[in-house]
Amino acid sequence: MNIDDILQEFEESETPVTSNIHNNLITAMINERMSPELLPFAQTTMTTALTAISNQQQYLIDSHEYGDSVGSTSEFKLNTMIIETEIERLCYLVRMYLRTRLSKLDKFTIYYINEEQEDSKLLSAEEKEYIHKYAHLLTQLYNNCFLKKVPPSLTLLDDTSGGQSMITTPDTNQHVFVKSVTSKPITLFIDNDDIELKRDGIYVVKYGLVKQYIELGDVILI
């Protein structure tokens, strides 16, 4: 290992720290939007983003309250406008991220209830509450509409007998566009073939193959 390697490694370890909330949030949002299944909840990114939003909003409120003396200058107006745009954008990213997750939860409700463990990082606390209540509401709806009137053998909602599973599961064989962001080449094995993902290269692969690298952050979806 020569000095260049060490420098490069240092730079790499530096990137996640310096990259701002925006980039993290955008990556999280796009990854979530493009992957066929739910990804672990980006707790730290979300917390920082939400703090940033409320900080900015607090700043706006403060400057409205105390800013009367300078309030008429155009510089102040420009400032507020930039901050407001910033808030709008952050809000949009957060909104998109959370709603994408919810739409997946709606789609694969029973699957994720079965997947979920107490300490798992897949769902946030709010999402856990949401998915349980949602499942409860749906079951209630089905029961009231018709299930209570049919023979008991048919009332199950998570029946897997009869060769057909009633639980909708995400399709991990779906193809996704990925981009490698790590300098170490990643080798994927497909049957007897293998492909190497190089840094900044863009590939189309089955989601299941790159799943673990997405969770590590070595590969991003685009």
């Binding site: 939400l50 709008e88 957060v94 919810l102 709010e126 509450e129």
Partner: peptide
């Protein structure tokens, strides 16, 4: 409503087009 209330700063049911 209860889900949204935990993200009070973000209007979750807002426009889904980028601002």
């Amino acid at each position: 409503l209860s889900y949204k209330s935990s993200f009070s700063d973000v209007d979750l049911s807002g426009d889904l087009n980028p601002p």
